[in-house]
Protein backbone atom coordinates (compact mmCIF):
# COMPACT_ATOMS: atom_id res chain seq x y z
CA UNK A 1 0.00 0.00 0.00
CA UNK A 2 1.21 3.52 -0.83
CA UNK A 3 1.31 6.36 1.66
CA UNK A 4 -1.29 8.93 0.58
CA UNK A 5 0.34 11.95 2.23
CA UNK A 6 3.69 11.11 0.62
CA UNK A 7 1.99 10.87 -2.76
CA UNK A 8 0.50 14.36 -2.50
CA UNK A 9 3.74 15.75 -1.07
CA UNK A 10 5.51 14.34 -4.12
CA UNK A 11 2.95 15.97 -6.41
CA UNK A 12 3.40 19.27 -4.57
CA UNK A 13 7.16 19.06 -5.06
CA UNK A 14 6.78 18.15 -8.75
CA UNK A 15 4.40 21.07 -9.29
CA UNK A 16 6.86 23.41 -7.61
CA UNK A 17 9.61 22.32 -9.98
CA UNK A 18 7.54 21.91 -13.17
CA UNK A 19 5.73 25.26 -13.03
CA UNK A 20 8.32 27.74 -14.34
CA UNK A 21 7.67 30.52 -11.76
CA UNK A 22 11.36 30.72 -10.81
CA UNK A 23 12.77 30.96 -14.34
CA UNK A 24 12.39 34.73 -14.55
CA UNK A 25 15.32 35.01 -12.12
CA UNK A 26 17.53 32.58 -14.05
CA UNK A 27 19.80 34.24 -16.64
CA UNK A 28 19.35 32.86 -20.15
CA UNK A 29 15.89 31.44 -19.46
CA UNK A 30 14.85 32.18 -23.04
CA UNK A 31 18.02 30.76 -24.63
CA UNK A 32 17.05 27.89 -26.91
CA UNK A 33 17.31 24.21 -25.99
CA UNK A 34 15.95 21.67 -28.52
CA UNK A 35 14.48 24.61 -30.45
CA UNK A 36 12.44 26.10 -27.61
CA UNK A 37 13.27 28.34 -24.62
CA UNK A 38 14.99 26.48 -21.75
CA UNK A 39 12.14 27.24 -19.35
CA UNK A 40 9.70 25.56 -21.74
CA UNK A 41 11.89 22.42 -21.87
CA UNK A 42 11.91 22.39 -18.07
CA UNK A 43 8.11 22.72 -17.92
CA UNK A 44 7.58 19.94 -20.50
CA UNK A 45 10.05 17.63 -18.75
CA UNK A 46 8.28 18.38 -15.46
CA UNK A 47 4.99 17.39 -17.03
CA UNK A 48 6.55 14.17 -18.37
CA UNK A 49 7.81 13.29 -14.89
CA UNK A 50 4.32 13.92 -13.45
CA UNK A 51 2.89 11.62 -16.14
CA UNK A 52 5.42 8.87 -15.34
CA UNK A 53 4.78 9.19 -11.61
CA UNK A 54 1.00 9.07 -12.13
CA UNK A 55 1.35 6.03 -14.38
CA UNK A 56 3.51 4.34 -11.75
CA UNK A 57 0.86 5.06 -9.09
CA UNK A 58 -1.84 3.66 -11.35
CA UNK A 59 0.08 0.44 -11.71
CA UNK A 60 -0.15 -0.10 -7.93
CA UNK A 61 -3.14 -1.02 -5.77
CA UNK A 62 -4.75 2.13 -4.33
CA UNK A 63 -4.98 2.42 -0.49
CA UNK A 64 -8.80 2.27 -0.49
CA UNK A 65 -8.82 -1.03 -2.34
CA UNK A 66 -9.17 -4.10 -0.18
CA UNK A 67 -7.00 -7.14 -0.70
CA UNK A 68 -10.07 -8.92 -2.01
CA UNK A 69 -10.45 -6.37 -4.83
CA UNK A 70 -6.79 -6.70 -5.71
CA UNK A 71 -7.08 -10.49 -5.84
CA UNK A 72 -10.17 -10.15 -8.04
CA UNK A 73 -8.29 -7.86 -10.44
CA UNK A 74 -5.31 -10.22 -10.59
CA UNK A 75 -7.63 -13.12 -11.40
CA UNK A 76 -8.98 -11.17 -14.35
Amino acid sequence: MLNVSRIWLAYGFLALVAIPWYWRWIPGADSLTFGVPSWVVSAILGSAVVSCYTAWLLSHPWPEESLEDVREQNDQ
Binding site: I19, P20, W21, W23, R24, I26, A29, D30, P37, W39
Partner: peptide, 10 residues
Protein backbone atom coordinates in the same frame (compact mmCIF):
# COMPACT_ATOMS: atom_id res chain seq x y z
CA UNK B 1 5.78 35.59 -26.06
CA UNK B 2 9.01 33.68 -25.48
CA UNK B 3 9.88 35.06 -22.03
CA UNK B 4 9.31 33.00 -18.86
CA UNK B 5 6.14 33.90 -16.95
CA UNK B 6 6.13 36.89 -14.60
CA UNK B 7 4.39 36.61 -11.22
CA UNK B 8 0.90 37.26 -12.57
CA UNK B 9 1.43 34.70 -15.34
CA UNK B 10 2.84 32.23 -12.79
Amino acid sequence: KVAPPNWIAS
